[in-house]
């Protein structure tokens, strides 16, 4: 099979970008989408052109580095998988495929398809942790946790921090990302002492980093490669409300 690619090319953050059209050589349908881009880049390099910059690393859907909007959809056509797990068999011979970077104000484009997502780290640094000093932990089995809660916490913890939820949201909200961490820690007994302080701080950090408000349209859930549920946003909202009623962080 062969496809045509309409790819966003942008020299750096300040320069204006544009779409450029590329034709691929003959492809194997079992190639991954990123392997297809590797092949195109090899060709560009040999022609003396600069290859397309794109982010990737583990190529098995867990590191959260890859980040392409394929035909208007973050992470491409399939639900519950990342770009790196998208294979060419999902496309037809002769297709024109449009490839863009995440588009969201808190994620400036660095070059071509690469953006920076440090804004997500800022949210985590505001409270996405349980304060426990190394060596100070009690025996792991001294605090039983019901299997249901542990499983639900794991569902939330599966977030890979790729930012597709932000890229899909019309307001560029990072609610699903933030809610996943707030829920994971809020579901566990270890996370209780900082529960309300955490949610307030993380939501504040999200606002400060320039992410928009959540109107619960669910577009984030639809593109999440780990199928993180919208229910976690409800959990965050509930915790945030309780935290607001309780007043300042000192009561948290």
């Amino acid at each position: 099979m062969k496809v045509k690619l309409k790819v966003w090319r942008q020299k750096d953050t300040r320069s204006a970008g544009e779409f450029r059209l590329y034709e691929t050589p003959d492809l194997n349908v079992n190639m991954s989408f990123l392997e297809m881009l590797d092949v195109v880049n090899e060709q560009l390099t040999l022609k003396g052109e600069e290859p397309i910059a794109f982010d990737h690393d583990c190529r098995e859907g867990i590191c959260g580095t890859c980040s392409l909007v394929i035909n208007g959809k973050p992470h491409g056509p399939h639900r519950g998988v990342a770009t790196c797990q998208t294979y060419m068999r999902s496309f037809q011979d002769g297709d024109i495929i449009i490839v863009e970077p995440w588009r969201a104000r808190p994620f400036p484009v660095v070059k071509d398809l690469v953006v920076t997502r440090q804004a997500l780290d800022k949210i985590m640094q505001a409270g996405g942790y349980i304060s426990v000093r190394t060596g100070a932990a009690p025996d792991a089995n001294s605090i039983p946790i019901s299997k249901e809660n542990a499983d639900l916490a794991m569902d939330a913890a599966a977030c890979i921090g790729c930012g597709a939820c932000v890229a899909a949201c019309k307001n560029a909200s990072a609610m699903l990302f933030t809610a996943a961490k707030v829920s994971q820690l809020g579901l566990l007994p270890q996370g209780q002492p900082e529960r309300y302080r955490r949610v307030k701080r993380m939501v504040e950090a999200m606002d400060e980093a320039g992410f928009g408000a959540c109107t619960v349209t669910g577009s984030c859930e639809a593109v999440c490669p780990k199928n993180i549920s919208l229910d976690f946003i409800a959990r965050l909202n509930r915790d945030y409300l309780v935290a607001s009623l309780k007043g300042g962080a000192k009561h948290g």
């Binding site: 942790y129 349980i130 932990a137 792991a140 605090i143 542990a150 499983d151 916490a153 270890q190």
Partner: peptide, 9 residues
């Protein structure tokens, strides 16, 4: 476990 790692239970 104290950090909130959701180990299987």
């Amino acid at each position: 476990a104290a950090q909130g790692v959701p180990f299987a239970r």
